[in-house]
Nucleic acid binder design. Structure first.
Lengths: 227, 227
DNA sequence: CAAGTATTCAATAGATATATTGAATACTTG
DNA sequence: CAAGTATTCAATATATCTATTGAATACTTG
């Protein structure tokens, strides 16, 4: 047991064991698909347990348990307001680490690369826009930037200049966007399919549209780092 | 099962599940203390299974099994020469990710921070030198830099200007180092205790000595990034 | 090709992680 | 304070992970 190593003086082997045990404990907390999805959701802004349940496949008890694991490993923090408990990521250092892991996995694990390419292909969003390219397009003022996440997430933070058009709205009542400007749709991140769906619908309706490779959290961290 | 999702077209939920499963699979491969120690050893340069066994607590069968797990997850690669199998990390992108994880854990997990401080305190090496500070000291030419790892690791790569004094040598026959220059000892990284032991011995013998906060792999990555 | 060495395989028991279920708690509002 | 709602707890069966053991394989060298 980890805490049992808390004795006065440690020999070298005990020190190493304690450090590697602690590191492994953190990684174990991350090494679960449901918890990874929760992390991605919380990187959009704080959410109640119900908020997590609505945007994932999890039921209440299950979501709550996974959130406890994340909390016990200092990955998320909880805030109580009225009868609700709002969870959020502890800090941006963690978000930066999570994004590094995701970026590595997508670019270095062939299996994941292949799955991602097929997803993008099926949704006509293979030709995704990178964050750097987006910046250039914004500076040239020839882009209409759509945030297709739920409006609550948009309100927690969004890319400067983006317009909020949640997917249900986009599907029910296709607005008349200008066909002059190129449209770029973005959502929660590379694993989020909302932007893929938006690209599919819009391109089938004759718009010139691409998705952003990444999502709002990646844009946010990039802004922070360039300061 | 991960591979079973390999069907022609995926709905959004299936895509997300496949991506998070794949990400979790990678993290599970990392989430084990023995494998983390192996990774740290391999970040010093390639090693045979026997090399791993000698520098860890593992027996052959166990080390071999963990190495298979790492290989199946594209974390290490194997090269066969004569009767030996030499393992090494796949690439520097992975090493960079590993170091990010370790750095995060040490600075953001209170428990690990505490254990590390006690270790450094016990070995009189609390006042460690950072990589930036070391660079300044080297430029001012007022430092004797000791690499206290086994000489094989020194030969795979070492900090420019460092002298190889493996721990056994240092312990058996304390050389007459100049007492004018400050000594800085370094080893495999922040979880390695060799430099701590070196600091302890040397400072008890009247030398002005500190350890490097990090190790050779961290120095190497920093060099790569500044290009 | 026989002997020796390095590594891997296969089987297994014990430990740990996970989803599910139903109940308990805590808080708010009328 | 009663009723309703959000969240957590506790128990459990199943699945997965891990260390250990003894044997098998693969390669080299004499």
């Amino acid at each position: 047991m980890f805490a049992a190593r808390n004795i006065y003086k440690m020999k070298g082997r005990e020190f190493k064991d304690a450090m590697y045990d602690g590191l492994a404990k953190l990684l174990k907390a991350l090494a679960n698909p449901a918890r990874l999805e929760i992390i991605e959701m919380l990187s959009q802004g704080e959410k109640s347990v119900e908020g997590i349940v609505q945007t994932t496949n999890l039921n209440f008890a299950n979501a709550s348990q996974h959130l406890q694991v994340l909390k016990n490993n200092n990955i998320v923090k909880a805030r109580k307001e009225k009868q609700y408990v709002f969870y959020s990521l502890v800090n941006n250092e963690f978000l930066s680490l999570y994004q590094h892991i995701a970026r590595y996995a997508v670019s270095e694990i062939a299996e994941l690369e292949r799955i991602m390419n097929r997803q993008r292909d099926d949704n006509k969003s293979l030709n995704a826009v990178g964050l750097d390219e987006l910046e250039t397009m914004i500076n040239n003022e020839n882009v209409l930037l759509l945030d297709v996440r739920p409006s609550a997430e948009y309100e927690f933070g969004h890319i400067t200049g983006a317009v909020s058009v949640p997917m249900p709205d986009l599907l029910c009542c296709l607005k008349d966007f200008s066909k002059d400007k190129e449209i770029v749709a973005y959502c929660r991140g590379p694993f989020c399919v909302l932007a893929d769906e938006a690209v599919k619908v819009l391109s089938e309706n004759g718009y010139k549209v691409r998705r952003l490779d990444e999502g709002y959290p990646e844009w946010k961290m990039k802004q922070l780092e360039s300061n």
